[in-house]
Amino acid sequence: MTTRTLILKLEKVRTGYGRKPVLEDVNFSVYLHDFIGIVGPNGSGKTTLLKVILGLLPPWRGKIRYFRGGNEVDRFSMGYMPQLTRVDPDFPITVADIVRSGLMSRGGNQPGDSAVQRVMERMGIADLRRRPLGELSGGQRQRVFLARAIVSSPPLLLLDEPDTYVDRDFGREFYETLTELNRDMAILMVSHDLGMIASQVKSIACVNGSLYHHESSEITQELMDSYRCPIDLITHGRVPHRVLKSHQNENP
């Protein structure tokens, strides 16, 4: 095995909202080219984990350390694709503007029309550049927000349930794109699609108040029991072949 380059390290992180802690004692390392699926029940702190990594939420205790080229840095550019339901779909903004907003930075906007054009072509949305957000389909919207997340070529991409409201056919294409992107950047992805998690990601982190990182994408009953993680799924290799129980909060 080649030596892996550490890019992100959470040490004993505790955080939450108001006075209520959501995550406690989280230790977590992310390496270059990692593709980690984040699973856990609703309200377990999956989105909170992304937010504390992104700097949207300060850690109450513990430390978040960022590394670039082996050296510790203050922070690096991160690509973030939020849950699509969080964005106002009727906001008067065009596809090109949304993608370009992924380049904004503290000192003003980098001149990056060529980067915007390149990423829109890569995502197959170049024809939509003048279209307003409100006229896009679910799949198109997903590609636009992924484009915004990666236009700055970040070393780390964070996706919060990117697969909600997207049909299965397009979903497959989307995951292939992610696998391709994974050659250039580490990916952390919150998802409910367990089949996809098992077949696409390289490892799984289970969040349930704290975090348990399992260094392979194989989920076993024993593992989940020992980690008190209420997701019951057994997979071997690339395709899940046995699903024991559905999510607690979903219909069977």
């Binding site: 973030y80 903004i93 503007d97 949304i98 907003s101 904004m104 930075s105 503290r106 906007n109």
Partner: peptide, 19 residues
Amino acid sequence: HRILYLAFDPEFARTRNVP
């Protein structure tokens, strides 16, 4: 651009480290 992007998605702007 900043006015537009911040109006559209202020949380995303914060992830870009923009005040």
